[in-house]
Every structure is written in C-alpha cells, then in structure tokens.
C-alpha cells in the first residue's frame, strides 16, 4: 500500500490526484498501522519547517518513518517534505529533520526575490531511472525560500537560482523533489510516472 502521510499540513488531494493519473493508488493516512505496512510513503508539506517538524516528532510519526526507511520502504518527500528528509533546518531557528539524507536546510540568499517562485528548468546531474523521462531544460514549478545544502551526492537534478539548488534527490529508497511534480504539468507527470515504475 502507498500512503500519503497526513500530519495536518497542506493540501494532499492534488498530489493524490496526480499520482492516480500515473496509476499510483495512494491512501491519505496518519494511521501507524497502515504506515507500518506501507510499501511507499509520501511526505508532502507546505508551510513552515518548524510546524512540520514538531508535528512529525510530537506524534511519533518521525520515529516510525525513520524505522520504515531503514527497512527499505520508499520515502518520498515533496517540497517541504523533501527538506524534512535532511538532518536539520535553519528556517527561523534550528529544527530537527528526519536525518535520512545528510545535509542542512538553509535560506536562499543574495537573490533579489525570495521566495523562489515559478517555473525553472532542471539540469540532469546523474542518470537514474527516476529521471528517465526527464531532460535537461525541462521546466518544473518551484515555491520555496530555503534549500538543501549538502555534499551533493544525492542530487539527480538541480536548478539554478543564485546557486545550485538540489531539485530531484535520491539516496537509495529516499527520494525528494524540491519542486511540486503534481503542479508541474506534463514534466511533473512524467517524473511521477517514472517514480511509479520504481516504487510499485
């Protein structure tokens, strides 16, 4: 069973609809039993890192996600959900992430406009089944003010906004999209299609 984790933040319906369009039937849930038997877990999220981090750690879902990821279950973070996969974030303080990918979430600086909001193009950095239908130059929809700073080992594709922003990341069974594939028209749909071929 594929789960979209409902921890009280954001709109999950768009993601569910987009996944369904690619043949991925996902259930919106926060039930520990269902999460314990899931084969893939989507971690969505909009809003503040602090709220999301607190919601995950206070509810015990964070521990459960860490346990499931260790068992090889696919954990797929989207937007803020991707940022939560890293060690910690410096968004208005310092908050703990899930620690599934080494790195920190820091603010975009030295750009005239923040948030980085709109359509930006991807550069493919590393070949992977996840990006098999995606090409350098494809546009996807970003909305964020912070980004992942890491060794870069996990980057499959990046975009540029003042600096190199990890856009599609993967560390084994841990996958993240900084942009919104469910809002990225045909390019996003093809990424979700490739994702379906990996996780199903």
């Amino acid at each position: 069973m594929v789960i979209i984790l409902d921890y009280g933040l954001g709109n999950l319906r768009s993601l569910q609809t987009a996944l369904e369009g690619q043949g991925i039937k996902a259930k919106i849930s926060n039930d520990p039993e269902e999460i314990s038997s899931a084969t893939a877990i989507f971690l969505p999220g909009v809003g503040a890192f602090r709220d999301a981090s607190n919601a995950l750690w206070d509810s015990g879902l964070a521990e459960l996600l860490r346990k499931r990821s260790g068992e090889g279950v696919y954990i797929i973070g989207i937007c803020l959900g991707m940022q939560l996969l890293y060690d910690k974030s410096f968004e208005n303080g310092e908050y703990e992430g899930l620690g599934l990918i080494p790195g920190e979430i820091v603010k975009l600086v030295e750009m005239p406009k923040i948030p980085h909001m709109g359509w930006n193009n991807l550069t493919i950095e590393k070949e992977d089944p996840l990006t098999k239908y995606t090409s350098t130059g494809d546009f996807v929809y970003f909305v964020h003010s912070y980004y992942a700073k890491s060794s870069g080992d996990e980057i499959l594709a990046y975009t540029e906004y003042g600096e190199k922003i990890p856009a599609v990341v993967r560390k084994g069974n841990i996958i993240g999209f900084q942009f919104h594939p469910e809002k990225s028209s045909e390019v996003g749909a093809l990424l979700l299609k490739a994702l379906g071929e990996i996780i199903l």
Partner: peptide, 11 residues
C-alpha cells in the same frame, strides 16, 4: 476549487 484542483496540474 475542488473541481479545478482535480482537473489541472499547474498552480
């Protein structure tokens, strides 16, 4: 809004 959200994949 719900009808629009189910039909389109842009923000």
């Amino acid at each position: 809004i719900e009808k629009v959200a189910s039909k389109i994949n842009i923000p």
